[in-house]
Amino acid sequence: MKKTSKEKRNKGLGIGFCSAVYLFLFIPIFVVVSNSFNATTSKPYLSWKGFTLDWYLKLWDNTSLLSSFGNTMIIAVSSTVLATIIGTLGAVGIYRYKFRGKGIINGLLYIPVVIPEIVIGIALLTIFSNVKIPRGMLTLILSHVSFSVPYVIFNVRARLSGYDKSIEEASMDLGANRIVTFFEITLPTLAPGIAGGALLAFTLSIDDVIISYFVNGQTKTYPLKVMESIKSGVSPDVNALSTLVLIGTVGLVFLTQSGLLSGKHKKI
């Protein structure tokens, strides 16, 4: 009897503790969402002046905000596509072939992952300015590719470690050439790893502040636009856009989650 009451107390403590941590994680989200409905029109847009949906309409007139969001999407999609292609090829090649410098390449892959982003940012800025590549969309895409490729490789490599080479040999024995085998056998087997890597690359790209801050030139991404507006107070239409993006991502993930998971279970 005594023990159950103690267990109950422990359970209560655990639930209380976890709720506190979740509250901590969600406080700024509540602030962002509630401010998107704030009727205030005076800077710094913090005091509550009643509920309105105006900002969700005004958002569509804020062309500089929308174009920065467009830039973020262009950069995220193109850098994800490039990083996924380069990373998948690289992971397969590193896994399969013996060549000089393999150890070096493996070691170099960890650099963008462990070194603080600010160092990568200033290093890229330095090289772009030295070889006179004008800073803008191109340098942003190149930079995002450079920090996402290692993550794609790690994800694909995890998939390769459980990979049975004999099915490729079987395919070649049955008369398929190397390229057909790659597209028909290798790629489908690696697909979950590739998808995971691509998703990570996309997420890293849309949220990147620090590296973009150094290599952007005149091109504004959505996070950089937010950074610019922080000095004068983030206007509620920025909060409205953030809220829409959040709802979109949560919705997308919950829609795809069940499918992704059932696929995973089948493979393992």
Binding site: I29, V31, T203, V209
Partner: peptide, 30 residues
């Protein structure tokens, strides 16, 4: 769900979340 709830906040841009903290902790904040 509990696991997902740890990740969801991080789908909002990190700058805007940090700004959310500033708004929350400020002198006229919640």
């Amino acid at each position: 769900l509990l696991y997902m709830l740890v990740i969801i906040p991080f789908w909002t841009n990190s700058l805007i979340r940090i700004y959310g903290w500033r708004a929350f902790l400020g002198s006229s904040g919640w």
